[in-house]
Simulated scan of single mutants.
Amino acid sequence: MSSDPLDDVFNLEDRFYTQGYTQGVEDGARAGRIEGRSFGMEKGFEKFLESGRLAGKAIVWANRLPKKTAKQKDASEKSSEACTLPPLPSNPRLEKNVKLAYALVEPDTLSTDNSDEAVQDFDDRVKRAQGKVKIIERMLN
């Protein structure tokens, strides 16, 4: 007799362990992709929401900057009737920071690619814009 009839019973635990492990790896890979995609969408939304908030602030500030030429002054007199926000003080440094803050988070120039370089650039620009917004807020207070 070359083989023991109870070998199958002795190896039963190993077979079930191997089968369960294989199924767990397959299920985990599938669930991991779904959870990863969901998490990525959530984080992407949060980042783009922050950039939009910063761009909105910069647009409001840019529209409150004093106009310089007579041609622009005539247009601002007409639009100032509809605007309820007071104009910002005339300050070249403030104007430069407002323009730079908007340029950093302008939606058309921000890349939404999912590459390491694009994500790093996006994060860097938003972080720099946050710094500019803090400077502007301090100048206005």
Rank of each mutant, 00 (worst) to 15 (best):
G40R: 05
L49Q: 07
G36A: 07
D8A: 14
L88S: 06
E95P: 00
A101K: 05
G36D: 02
V98P: 04
A58N: 02
D121F: 02
K71R: 12
M1Y: 06
E26P: 00
G40M: 09
S51V: 10
G28P: 07
T112A: 07
V126R: 04
E95G: 08
L104A: 04
S51F: 02
N141M: 15
P92W: 03
Y17I: 15
S76R: 12
R64G: 01
S111C: 10
A70F: 05
A62R: 11
E13N: 10
I34F: 01
K57F: 07
D27Y: 09
A31D: 06
A62Y: 04
R37A: 02
I135F: 06
Q72F: 01
S80L: 11
I59D: 00
E42S: 09
V133S: 06
M1S: 12
V25L: 14
V119R: 03
D116A: 15
Q72S: 12
F10W: 08
R37K: 11
L104F: 05
K47A: 03
T18E: 11
Y21E: 13
P66H: 02
E42F: 10
K71V: 15
L110C: 04
G40Y: 01
Y21P: 00
S79W: 07
G32C: 04
Q23S: 11
V98M: 08
T18A: 12
V98S: 01
R138E: 14
Q72G: 01
G56T: 06
